Simulated scan of single mutants.
Amino acid sequence: MKLNLLAIAIPALLVAAGANASIEVWNKDGNKVDFYGRVKAANNITDRGQKDEGDDTSARLGMSGQTQITDSIVGYGRWEYEADAGKNSDNEVRYAFAGLNFGDLGSFDYGRNDGVLKAITAYTDVLPQFGGDASNNNWNVLSSRTKAVATYRNNNFFGLSDDFSFALQYADNGDNSTTEDSIRGDSREAYGANAQWRIFDTGLTAGGGYAQSTVKGTRHNTWAGGLKYENYDLYLGANYFQSKLKKGSTVHWSNGYQRHRDLKVRGFELVAQYGIDLEVGRLTPSLAYVQHKLKADSMHFNRRNVHYYAPGYNSPMAKYVSLGATYDLNKNFSTIIEYKFNLLDRKDIGAAMNTKTQRGKHENKPGTKDVLGVGLIYQF
Rank of each mutant, 00 (worst) to 15 (best):
L6K: 10
L13R: 13
N31S: 10
A41W: 01
A42N: 03
K51P: 00
K51M: 13
D55K: 14
A59E: 07
T70I: 12
V74S: 12
N88S: 04
N88W: 02
D90N: 15
R94G: 00
G99D: 01
Y110S: 05
R112D: 01
K118W: 03
A122N: 07
Y123H: 08
T124H: 00
Q129Y: 05
G131Y: 03
R145V: 13
K147Q: 11
R153W: 06
N155K: 15
T178F: 10
R184Y: 12
R184T: 11
N194T: 12
N194R: 09
Q196E: 03
I199S: 13
G203F: 04
Q212W: 06
N221M: 07
G226H: 00
G226M: 04
L227Y: 01
K228A: 04
Y232F: 09
N239E: 09
N239C: 11
K244Q: 09
T250Q: 14
H252N: 15
H260V: 02
G267C: 13
G275T: 14
L278R: 02
G281W: 05
Y289R: 09
N302Q: 15
A318C: 06
V321A: 08
L323C: 11
L323A: 15
N330M: 08
S334W: 03
F341P: 02
L343V: 06
R346Y: 05
I349N: 01
K356Q: 15
K361Q: 14
Q379E: 07
